[in-house]
Design a protein around this nucleic acid. Structure first.
Lengths: 114, 114
DNA sequence: ACTATAGTTTGCCAATCGGTGAACCAAGTG
DNA sequence: CACTTGGTTCACCGATTGGCAAACTATAGT
């Protein structure tokens, strides 16, 4: 059951890096080989492979080797879990906000500045 | 413009920790003082304050002091930005899946024709 | 004024992170 | 076969993280 917390840990951690988010983004349009994926980034292959490993360990992507080329593809489920957690939290907030709005209507002026 | 990337960095990073996610969760039902927030966690106050600072720097929460008590509240906007990024990615994926489905369907009808 | 409370700062620590270069496979290719 | 290509592993590095204990500040209660 608390598996879920751990997978959120790794998923959020994986997404907390611009390189890895860019990889996710580029994989959304279809699977790609490691070299093709790595090409736009200014770093060596070992560093890039580490990023891929973080992504794979988090369950956000899947990779498989055929011949000497490793192909990476997205795994939408894990991304959905993250989205689900977020929307659950926001639903909770909405409930509270609704309760509050029924009581004090003009408290939200603070929210405007940010 | 690319401020957005940086704020996603810090937001995802902030969420990549169970303690911090729990703080977010508990704040969803309304603002709380630091001590009240810290109470369920098995760590010293300094460590907990570091977590709060990470959350505040990420823009996920806001804190303010009145008297000697610092009160923390949620900031839904940043959370929404994260959700937005995720749903954008998924939309991209959907588009690809739809393209594939259309392609497959097209192939099938062509097979039908032939 | 004294004391308990709520928070803050400082210095320290081990573990993890993001990167490097160099050496090393293993699979295609001429 | 020799050689290139795509990926992998290894040892190392500086910076950041997440925790601690201890000393400190400032408000609130009596």
């Amino acid at each position: 059951m608390e598996n879920r917390g751990a997978s959120l840990d790794t998923a959020f951690h994986a997404l907390a890096d611009p390189t890895r988010r860019a990889v996710i983004h580029r994989l959304m349009t279809g699977p790609k080989a490691v070299k093709e994926l790595a090409e736009p980034f200014d770093m060596g292959l070992p560093a890039f492979l580490k990023h891929l490993r973080v992504l794979e360990d988090s369950g956000l992507i899947a990779t498989g080797k055929s011949g000497r080329v490793r192909t990476c593809s997205i795994r939408p489920q894990r991304l959905l879990e993250v989205e689900t957690w977020l929307s659950e939290q926001r639903a909770l907030w909405r409930a509270g906000a609704d309760r509050l709005a029924a009581y004090v209507e003009n408290q939200m002026t603070e929210d405007d500045d940010a």
